[in-house]
Computed example of a mutant assay.
Amino acid sequence: MTNREPTILATSGGHLPGVRTAFEFGPLVHHAVDLAGVTGRPRVCHLGTAGGDQAGFRGEAEEAARLGGFDLVHLRLFTMPNVEDLEGFLLEQDVVWVSGGSVANLLAVWRVHGLDQILRRVWEAGVVLAGVSAGSICWYVGGTTDSFGPELRSVTNGLGLLPFGNGVHYDSEAGRRPLVHRLVADGSLPTTHCTDDGVGLVYRGTDLVGAVSERAGQGAYVVRAVDGAAVEERIEPVALRGSR
């Protein structure tokens, strides 16, 4: 682990269709490694809690990591943690990548095992925290989720490492944008940072320092409450090398 400044890459992407494999790690995952300032072969830890630590997905992720040139390890919590010292294990990594699924379930399970506090210390120590969808929302105060059923709802008990709300899949799921606007306007969420599919937001400490994209034409957005209404500002992301 080489990076010393607390860094988060929160995304709606990073997993791309594979040619000979189920999927490949896209430019967003490679950017997380770049943010870590790795010298030598990167060490990436995958947390699949939001999807129930599915064995099949772990194998597919290992294939994607092999193609990407990473050393990938998994931190599993089902049916019990697969390592004794969770904090020590995570501190050995360059990047923690959290995949998607149910953010509500993820937060509950992490808290049972003390990962909410452990991940804060790991972040403060300089390990890059990153992820997609549920693996994005978790770092914020909250966001919009389908964790509870097909109808989108708010989740407001995120880890709060970042003092904002988060809107993922902002362009690809029709209900996301209007719900974010309503939640920000009525104060249920603070100022909220949103990503179209294929876009990521980079934070140093708690400061948003930029947006990056692995897909052309996509955007990032900041939604603020002004006089009881939601006001949206678009941020143009920087295209990453290898973007499609």
Rank of each mutant, 00 (worst) to 15 (best):
V180I: 15
H31M: 02
A229P: 01
L106T: 04
P163L: 09
D94Y: 06
R76W: 02
G40V: 06
D186S: 12
R76I: 00
G100I: 09
L16R: 12
F78M: 03
V238Y: 14
V155E: 04
R4K: 15
L28H: 01
R66C: 05
G228M: 03
P163S: 12
A10Q: 06
T49Q: 11
H46C: 11
R111E: 15
D85F: 00
V33P: 02
Y170F: 11
T192A: 02
V209K: 12
T145V: 07
E124I: 10
E124S: 11
A104T: 12
A185V: 11
L28F: 06
L72I: 07
L161I: 07
V95D: 02
R176F: 11
H181A: 15
H46E: 10
L47T: 14
L208K: 01
Y203G: 09
T206S: 15
L72H: 00
E63N: 10
L107V: 07
L106S: 04
G242V: 15
A65R: 04
A36D: 05
P17N: 08
V231P: 03
P237L: 05
L162C: 12
E62L: 13
G40A: 01
S147P: 11
V19M: 10
A239N: 08
P27I: 10
P42N: 13
L72M: 08
V199N: 02
W97Q: 05
T145F: 10
V98I: 14
Y221E: 08
L107G: 02
V83G: 10
E151Y: 00
G242S: 14
F70A: 00
A174R: 15
D71G: 05
H193V: 04
A10D: 05
G200I: 03
I235Q: 11
F70M: 10
V155F: 05
G101T: 09
V83S: 10
R241L: 13
E24W: 07
A32G: 09
T11S: 04
A65D: 06
L91W: 04
L159M: 10
W110M: 15
G205T: 14
V238S: 14
N3R: 06
D227Y: 12
R43G: 09
H15L: 13
H30I: 06
G69V: 08
L119T: 12
G14Y: 00
G37R: 03
G219N: 08
H15M: 15
A229F: 07
D197G: 01
D197N: 13
G142A: 03
P42F: 13
V96L: 11
V109M: 02
S213C: 14
L77C: 00
T39W: 03
V103I: 15
R224P: 01
L159G: 02
V19L: 15
G13M: 05
T195E: 13
M1E: 10
T192N: 00
G13T: 01
